[in-house]
């Protein structure tokens, strides 16, 4: 297995030749699993049409409001730092994405997923599944109450650890805005070492995945608050309906 030192050197060499990119590189060999799983031909330009212009529609029949609280799903209190996470989902023009589905999944406080393929010998928390859903409100705001996930080891290289993160699955108003990403926590010492995070070669772009601690979201003797806003690519479909009640 490669050392962290050699992986970090590969990352530094790639970063030295990059500037101003806003999305991860799909061709990023320091993340070993990416090597055979990225296209090598240029993406083909397409003007969106038909179903591409319309995201699937979700509503209150799909999502129980209780699914936004990951601390109450299993009958008892999960172990770890209780936290609230709130932010806004916007399109590339700054419009709120309303009443849209947000799905999250994450490790527990010990860095263990409730997943049969997770072999990390850290305890499973019987009171925590780490899965949540909500709908954004009319302001594009989403909110979850959860437990702060722990970092966890993986087999990319020797002694590789993922910075603590929450996986996010997001829809916009167009299907072309569909995306999946990971949200991180401020000042994680593992940032510099992680080839998934560092596949985004620009520091400003990487910062967009990091939540900020927000004391106004914290609650006295109860939980810590974090804020993380999300911006999707621009919508292509005309948004007459959305504009109507924008005033």
């Amino acid at each position: 297995m490669d050392t962290q030192e050699s992986v970090s050197k590969e990352i530094a060499d790639i970063h030295a030749g990059a500037s101003g990119e806003t999305q991860p590189r799909v061709d990023f060999p320091p993340y070993r699993s990416s090597i055979l799983r990225h296209p090598t031909k240029d993406l083909r330009h397409a003007d969106p049409e038909g179903a591409e212009l319309v995201a699937p529609v979700f509503g209150h029949s799909d999502v129980d409001p209780l699914e936004a609280d990951l601390t109450i799903q299993a009958g008892g209190e999960p172990i770890g730092e209780r936290m609230r996470l709130r932010g806004r989902l916007l399109d590339g023009d700054g419009r709120p994405v309303r009443r849209q589905l947000v799905e999250i999944w994450q490790a527990n406080a010990a860095g263990r997923y409730v997943h049969k393929r997770d072999q990390h010998p850290a305890p499973v928390d019987p009171n925590f599944t780490g899965v949540g859903r909500c709908l954004t409100d009319d302001d594009g705001t989403y909110e979850f109450v959860t437990i702060k996930p722990g970092p966890y080891p993986w087999r990319n290289h020797h002694n590789a650890w993922r910075p603590a993160h929450i996986h996010f699955s997001l829809f916009g108003t167009d299907f072309t805005q569909r995306m999946i990403t990971q949200m991180y926590f401020p000042s994680d010492p593992l940032f510099a070492l992680d080839p998934i995070y560092q596949s985004i070669t620009d520091q400003r772009a990487r910062d967009r995945l990091v939540a900020t601690y927000d004391h106004d979201l914290s609650e006295h003797e109860w939980l810590m608050g974090y804020r993380w806003d999300i911006v999707l690519t621009g919508a292509h479909a005309t948004q007459m309906e959305a504009e109507d009640d924008d005033a």
Partner: peptide, 16 residues
């Protein structure tokens, strides 16, 4: 209003 970067779905999405 720059788009938020994507990241891999990772190995553990199957229960979510």
């Amino acid at each position: 209003l720059t788009a938020t970067p994507g990241q891999t779905i990772g190995p553990f999405f199957h229960y979510a």
